[in-house]
Design a binder for these strands. Structure first.
Lengths: 300, 300
DNA sequence: CGCATTCTCTGACCTTAGTCAGACAATGGG
DNA sequence: CCCATTGTCTGACTAAGGTCAGAGAATGCG
């Protein structure tokens, strides 16, 4: 194992795009232009709206229109006007289109099989395990964390999902109005801030900070979507909150949590929070934590 | 970890081409057509012959000619007639071309860095380790093993490298004529066969079989190029030789080896060969091995 | 209702990538 | 010296992928 991390990532990129990128395209296309094949794939067995194809594949609307009409001329798709909105077109695969897509599917399987074939069982298992690890960590690195207005749809989505999960996991349910507040205004600079994590365009996590005047701040609304767990996102959100807090001159961070949220409690302990006596009367809390920010816990 | 091996390989392909393939092209191109950027990269800082670019990038000669003249018009390369062969064009980067290439290099670094940036140290180390593993095993799976005529250049190359290595590693050197023969004819069907392993077009290993009439066969010329060690290629060559032997009705495989070749000895033991008393008078051998092929050691 | 917006479609246009056939020059082997 | 081969260059051509501007229909909001 030689080279810096960056050199090693570059070497990986080279090998992998050679082996997978190139073959993938050739395998998928099979006579058909690559753009059409990708489109056929993206439509899926259920069919979908043209506009969603446009955003997912990032296509010019004129270009997409032409691609779709080519596929229709080949008898692979049906294009109908949406029932509830006369502007949008719904695209569905015909039986011939479904067959074509199944063939693409089969070819993708073949490609994967051709990679595994020359290896022995032990090598296969190791390859697949390493691939899983790379995939997981690349996904983690694709997550973007940004300061967001709590009124934006992505933020609202996270809050709703967060409350729903609390209601589901707490023994006594969860009623936001009974809990200590963290209203939109309290999570908007300069009173506080909200971080939202997104993967591609999907919101997959959040975390908030309520700043106070006395060098204290509270961590609120820590949540990671079930689909994004195991990526170290909780740790990352917490670290970024701490960095923001430090940048605002905060010395001590506090938070409270419910005993049902075992992963969260583990996360806080691992991040250097120590349990303290109740510092508020949050009715849903069982544990109160505190962490002193300082040179020992750099803001990165 | 869910799904069959094939599903998991496919999921990996999707994630990786999304994260790396797409970005890689966009990063590299930076305004310039991708073909030109790739060419610029491939010319290298030393310059090289047009014909080698053609074969390496698999380009049409007319197409390459035009690409090169575009780059020259942009002041990025110089095209000169080769001194020793008036047909060949030698391409070298101008200072501007070198600067451009350095910029591509920097962008490639940036891409790699952008992948690592959102991760913490532990995740980075794990990602890079997993990438190394994937790369190693994908390389292993790109190696092709085929039955080859020992007179072909790739086979000759392997033999020369093999003899050179023996001469280097044996305490008393190595002189092929003093050793038991395995001439071209003896390694050509039906008398025997030679397997050659290639990576892309480079020969990276070989292994041979001398068949006899009495259900015995000898394994000869087992060699793996230093650049391809650690890929399990020795094991694979040996397994394929055994499969060929079994297909020819061979029951017992024999081989002898020199004590300096410790990896080979380990390989034979791990593959189920057991050491036996000397069955010939090979002057360079210190160990003799034998393996009985049968239902217990399936020919796959 | 009126008006801005959203979504699709069409025509016109462009670059990139690539193929093919043939011309031409240099080389190397007999 | 002849001739086949190798390497390059040019012209003619094609397909794929994509952009842009504008038209026109449907929708939603005030």
């Amino acid at each position: 194992m030689r080279g810096t991390l960056i050199e090693r990532v570059r070497r990986f990129n080279r090998t992998v795009t050679q082996r997978i990128g190139a073959l993938d395209d050739a395998f998928l296309a099979r006579g058909r232009p690559l753009g059409q094949a990708r489109l056929l794939w993206e439509i899926g067995t259920e069919g979908c709206a043209a506009r969603s194809l446009r955003s997912r594949l990032d296509l010019d609307s004129g270009y997409l229109s032409r691609l779709l009409h080519t596929l229709r001329a080949d008898g692979l798709v049906m294009i109908d006007t949406d029932e509830s909105d006369g502007r949008v077109r719904t695209v569905r695969l015909t039986p011939a289109g479904l067959a074509e897509r199944a063939e693409l599917d089969r070819r993708s399987d073949d490609l994967a099989a051709s990679i595994l074939r020359p290896l022995d069982d032990r090598q296969r298992d190791r390859l697949v395990a390493a691939m899983g690890e790379v995939e997981r960590l690349l996904t983690a690195s694709m997550v973007r964390v940004t300061v967001a207005d709590p009124r934006r749809p992505a933020a609202r989505h996270c809050m709703r999902a967060y409350f729903a999960e609390l209601a589901d996991r707490f023994e006594i349910g969860f009623e936001p109005s009974r809990s200590i507040s963290a209203a939109d205004g309290e999570l908007t600079p300069p009173a506080g801030l909200l971080l939202v994590a997104t993967l591609h365009t999907d919101p997959v996590g959040c975390g908030a900070l309520k700043l106070r005047r006395d060098g204290l701040a509270e961590v609120k609304r820590m949540w990671v979507a079930p689909s994004a767990r195991g990526l170290g996102l909780g740790r990352r959100l917490l670290a970024e909150l701490e960095a923001h807090a430090a940048a605002h001159g905060v010395c001590v961070l506090r938070l409270e949590t419910n005993r049902a949220l075992t992963e969260a409690i583990g996360l806080y302990r691992a991040a250097g929070y120590r349990e303290v006596r109740a510092f508020n009367d949050e009715p849903y809390a069982h544990h109160w934590f505190e962490k002193t920010l300082g040179p020992g816990s750099p803001a990165e």
